[in-house]
Amino acid sequence: MKLAGATTAVRLRRLSALPVFALIAVLAIVLGVASPHALSAQNLINILNQQVSLILVTVGQTIVVLTAGLDLSVGSVVSLTTAIASHGTPFAVPLAILAALAVGLVNAGGILRFGIHPILMTLSTMTAVQGLALLVRPIPGGTVPGWMKTYAGAEILGLPLPVICAAVVVFLAAVVVSRSRFGLHLMATGASAQSALLGGVNTGRIILLAYLLSSLFACLGGLNLAARLASGDPLVGQPFGIDSIAATALGGTQLSGGLGGVAGPVVGVLFLALLGNGLNLLNISTYYQMIIKGVLLILAVSAHRRNQPGL
């Protein structure tokens, strides 16, 4: 028990995100020394704006991971959302949201009703939804409603509107996950669905909600991306599944469920983005970047040793 001084539940949850906060601080210092431009407000805002979609997707992923699940289908949902949203039909956006919720429903249904392992279930929907996205929009293009373009380009006090929206969404999600009944029940379900059930938690409903939220957040990420790119792309979401899982793990949320929060994974996204940005500034080849990212991921994740009770 290394965390002898931190045995309270709230502190443990806060501590889980500590390594990634430490990492990003170190990274910021290194980058600040290496390149004066790296930490300029404009560069940071740019990175934030670029990562809004992944941040949204990661928030949803975190919610699922807290229940000891995993959602590989988020990337396909992002793609499908951009494909539908760029289709020029009158109700494109509501349609995209409905489609995403349907994916979440199917995921939760398979997991709850048929007892399919989350990885297999969401792997299946990932594949199927990818096909659907390609059907809707075989090649990139199309255009999104004018208000979406306006949203993507708007700024308030020098901050891009998408960044502000993402900040609000992340804040709300963080409060809900750490302070609400739903959040507590997520942790309970993730630690032991059986015990949570006996303890009076409606675990089925919690898992259903988690996958619905995950798909919904993926959809929001897709809408943001479609707005930003003013077009749809059936393959644009492909990296989001793995990236969101990596960021979630990096942010101290245990993939075995029951421990973690939203803040850590969001910082995880920013860490990976800042790392990529910094490695580019230092002129390091993409191939080395991939190796460095992989190694850092292992180091960061192994910093959360699984010595927490019962986890």
């Binding site: 431009h37 404009q42 560069n43 740019n46 990175i47 704006n49 670029q50 979609s53 990139p140 293009g141 199309g142 255009t143 991306l225 930003r228 790119l229 003013a230 077009s231 792309d233 644009v236």
Partner: peptide, 28 residues
């Protein structure tokens, strides 16, 4: 392309005198 959007925004922010673009998408 998501990154290319940021790249262009970053170049604007840095106040370059001209932006040259080899685009990755016709619309994005």
């Amino acid at each position: 392309v998501n990154r290319q959007v940021s790249d262009i925004e970053s170049l604007i922010a840095r106040g370059v005198d001209a932006i040259l673009v080899a685009p990755g998408s016709e619309v994005a």
